[in-house]
Nucleic acid binder design. Structure first.
Lengths: 145, 145
DNA sequence: TCCATTACTTATCATATGATAAGTAAAAGG
DNA sequence: CCTTTTACTTATCATATGATAAGTAATGGA
């Protein structure tokens, strides 16, 4: 088994994944949201509630910058802070109602594009795809810790 | 077959791919190269020679900005322009010798990290991985045109 | 031959993002 | 308690990147 060849495949594959996700997510962000802000909202949609520190660590944004962006998003009424029960230093962040609505809409659009993309795929092939994703997720694209 | 569930899997999978590629490529760019410049160099490494228009289109950078970045990279001696035989308006771009060397080094580092990542994977599993990549590449992550 | 189009450049300008320093308040640990 | 650490904020500053307008030169088509 040639690991070098597999690496080549890996590179072109990840490039394809980036291109396709770019195509699928472009234009789903409302006007006044920056890319960074959108990526935070996306993270919130999946992982809320989270603390500022968690956002900072997971999205690789420094604490001051995270604080700034969350402030902007809060000003735009897209997310809200609330206290963490046992530690008054911490702040939980979650999507506000309108933030949630916005992200639902975005995911709907992406979902529609995804369905369009796999519309000609047979039922067995869908099984294959599911299986392939599971393989890659567990064997290659897993967290390293 | 539940396509909604598959979409969920798709989302978490692409997130994983982004995280893993981020981990694998971080710190491989030399000091004075910006992320955008690195991504152009990466593209050059794989597709050279290409015209400015091709870079502009593939990397989604406007022509003026592409021109500017290529100028910076040329100033840094990392790539070079040369004429296209039949059309004197066009310019081919390719990596210079030192640019090539830089990218070889970067890819070596990434390759090493990739090997580290799959070091405990058996020969059969490698086959499975290869197969899984082929499936996804052809059925899901292909160009749409 | 003339006009429209293409390929690229140059010059600004605005802004998103990254980095750093300094401050506050709560918690944790001796 | 007192000190240190954690979690976050505020305030700058620098810079990478995006957007736009205007210009040049070559090409291609009528």
């Amino acid at each position: 088994m040639d690991k070098e060849a597999l690496f080549q495949q890996f590179v072109t594959f990840t490039t394809s994944v980036h291109e396709v996700t770019f195509e699928m997510t472009k234009d789903v962000k409302p006007e006044d949201i920056t890319p960074l802000q959108y990526s935070i909202l996306e993270y919130l949609a999946v992982s809320q509630p989270v603390t500022l520190s968690q956002i900072s660590e997971c999205k690789h944004i420094s604490m001051p910058n995270t604080s700034r962006e969350i402030k902007k998003l809060t000003d735009k009424q897209l997310c809200e802070k609330f206290e963490v029960p046992d530690d008054r230093r911490k702040q939980f962040i979650r999507l506000s109602e309108s933030g949630q609505a916005m992200m639902n809409k975005a995911f709907e659009q992406i979902g529609a594009r995804f369905l369009e993309r796999i519309k000609d795929v047979s039922a067995e092939e869908l099984e294959d795809i599911q299986h392939a994703i599971n393989i890659l997720q567990s064997k290659v694209f897993h967290g390293s810790k």
